[in-house]
């Protein structure tokens, strides 16, 4: 049985966030039409489809997690070099 614990869960989530964060905006996301459209103005109707929210999530992760991911990845690489 493959052991999957909290460390595995952490690794899994970090790798997943990394995978989202390295998606290139103009080379990949724009080509398949996953760029977020213009923000709705005040009183504008928000597009609430699943795809719109997924696009929103991807762009938020790319914006928000870029700098923290550097530190997290560095810490993880050092940890795995020493103890892994």
């Amino acid at each position: 049985m493959v052991f999957f614990g909290l460390g595995g869960l952490l690794q899994f989530s970090v790798l997943l966030i990394n995978a989202i964060a390295i998606l290139s905006e103009d080379r990949f996301l724009a080509r398949i039409g996953w760029t977020s459209s213009a923000d709705p103005g005040f009183g504008g109707q928000r597009d609430d489809g699943i795809k719109a929210r997924l696009v929103n999530l991807v762009s938020s992760v790319r914006t928000l997690m870029r700098i923290p991911l550097m530190f997290i990845n560095t810490a993880m690489i050092i940890y795995l070099l020493i103890f892994g």
Partner: peptide, 19 residues
């Protein structure tokens, strides 16, 4: 393992409710 299963499940359902 049991706790991470619970956490993973909550993550999944949270993602689902967000999407």
């Amino acid at each position: 393992q049991a706790i991470s299963v619970m956490l993973l499940e909550i993550l999944i359902i949270k993602l689902g409710t967000f999407l």
